[in-house]
Design a protein around this nucleic acid. Structure first.
Lengths: 221, 221
DNA sequence: CCCCGCATAGTACAATAGTACTATTTTCAC
DNA sequence: GTGAAAATAGTACTATTGTACTATGCGGGG
């Protein structure tokens, strides 16, 4: 830890917004340990640069045209496992962060983090492989707990009523509200209420979430 | 957030080693926001104290006679969900840490952490529910990736294109057309087309059918 | 007996999904 | 470089879902 001030890290950045990208390039120049810097407009360009000469760290925007960050990272971690990847994003979408972690991303930063954190992240992924912030940790924690929930297909604790199960099964069979109401000799409104209650109970945003719940709890297979 | 220096946190500690326990009690006294402090020799004693008057934070040693930290925590998080639990341990055994996280522990500290980190942990679990350190984050990350390995699906099936798979994945994550189009930097119309094509290919009447296909073909677990 | 959860049914509206096409550009294999 | 498949984007419309409430009858447990 004595002489880390040597410029030992090459950093490439991919972002489709030129202004932002160039600003980052300038920022990177001020980081004491950053050596060579290259920038790309999209994932494809980045991959070409990496193929020519792999850097130590790649900073990738998640939203990009041509080849977005997700796709670019998939290639990167597969073909260049030595390159540490820092993903930038505007939204802190949990699901996507998880996907990235599964893929083997090395850090995840919101675009509004301060320069100090970016610098810290670069050094940390290079020195210790992974940079963890609260953003990542929270997603991971949640996930592990969710996994546990789904481990026990605990239907009873979910307190889904029999009627709700009827409705859920039919929803999973691609029936519409109208069809379900006819099948069960109910008003369409009633079925709608059951479905709404189900969504509330399992924490789903739409019927898709209900189907996933049905699969993961073992109601259907 | 102005006057956090008020003593607003009651902390209980359970550890069977008297010397260590009393040392911690003394240490806690020096923390500016810690108010009342009680200590217990084992998990059973701790639970009695908590039943009488729940604290804001409980610090629990993992290894204890009579009722160890694991058992004590199980009771604690179940019966007193408002009490934030900080687990102390000597070994950084991954298995235990994971188990604790699944149980809903709020922080995990090695016994050789410095006093500053303990203080920080207490305030963080109280203010923000969870205190994440590298110890926890690394275990979580590893776990999530292992999980992924074990369920690598055979996805060569069907003539679903890559782009369609992207869309399908997002559909399964309960995203709407609009959200998907934003995520992939596409027009909403394009996403709509991909979805329609998917439905045609797998013979689904609606998005529900797509989700079922995704599950049954192993695209998602 | 009374309360509560469940099942039932409703109104009204906003948002999203789904259908049915056409059309241009990109990509890739031959 | 031609042709086919894929990806992109569009118009225009209907159907369905999703949200946010209110309300009634029924049956079982305290």
């Amino acid at each position: 830890m004595t002489d880390k001030a040597t410029r030992d890290i090459n950093v490439y950045i991919a972002d489709d917004h030129t202004l932002f990208r160039k600003a980052i390039v300038n920022l990177l120049r001020t980081f004491s340990r950053v050596n060579e810097i290259k920038d790309a407009e999209n994932g494809k360009e980045l991959l070409e640069l990496v193929r020519e000469a792999p850097p130590q760290v790649a900073i990738v925007d998640m939203q990009m045209p041509v080849m977005d960050g997700v796709e670019a990272c998939e290639n990167l971690v597969k073909k260049h496992p030595d390159v540490k990847v820092i993903m930038l994003t505007m939204h802190d979408s949990e699901r996507y962060i998880l996907h990235m972690i599964e893929m083997g991303i090395h850090a995840f930063l919101l675009k509004n983090t301060d320069p100090e954190e970016l610098e810290r992240a670069i050094y940390t992924v290079y020195d210790k492989d992974f940079y963890h912030n609260d953003l990542m940790a929270n997603v991971l924690r949640k996930r592990v707990r969710e996994q546990l929930e789904s481990k026990r297909p605990d239907f009873s604790s979910m307190e889904i009523t029999d009627r709700e199960k009827d409705v859920l099964r039919l929803i999973c069979n691609e029936l519409t509200l109208k069809e379900i109401s006819q099948r069960l000799n109910l008003s369409e409104h009633t079925v709608r209420n059951h479905r709404a209650k189900l969504m509330e109970k399992v924490g789903a945003d739409n019927a898709i979430g209900l189907v996933r719940f049905a699969y993961e709890s073992g109601l259907i297979s």
